[in-house]
Design a protein around this nucleic acid. Structure first.
Length: 136
DNA sequence: GGTGAGCGC
């Protein structure tokens, strides 16, 4: 009885690794999978985080919004992110704001890509002779 | 001073 299953699995393995359908060519910029995070580009340099939230709040519950600005100059980079509470709101936000005008510029709203995890604080306080946190 | 494709701390 078990031999039947083993033989069947072995038979299936010959087809598990398909000779067809090679790995995807890895397109550089495919649209990200639907999520509550939205990537908004084409923003005006004068568009701020508040303006972004106000514009997208009309289509759903915005739980987070940020216009990316240069850390040193503080100037807007012209794109930002809007996070909705639900996927339905995110979809409505895209349909309602993608290709629309905001501060005189046509903006583009799409699903944002998952951001790489933030580096852990990594406080090596378990070592008596810790010079990395001496602040010098 | 502020580019006009992009993915943030």
């Amino acid at each position: 009885m078990a031999a039947v299953a083993v033989a069947r699995n072995g038979f299936r393995r010959m087809f598990s690794i398909s000779a067809f359908a090679p790995p995807p060519p890895a397109v550089p910029k495919p649209p990200a999978d639907p999520n509550t995070n939205l990537f908004v580009s084409g923003l005006s340099k004068r568009t701020t985080t508040e303006g972004l939230r106000e514009a997208f709040a009309k289509f759903g519950e915005v739980v987070h919004a940020r216009v990316v600005t240069d850390r040193v100059s503080g100037y807007s980079k012209g794109f930002g992110f809007v996070k909705y509470a639900t996927l339905e709101d995110a979809a409505e936000g895209i349909k309602g704001m993608d290709g629309k005008f905001l501060d005189g510029w046509v903006i583009f709203a799409e699903y944002a890509r998952p951001r790489p995890p933030p580096p852990p604080p990594q406080q090596n306080s378990d070592f008596p002779y810790n010079e990395s946190v001496s602040g010098y």
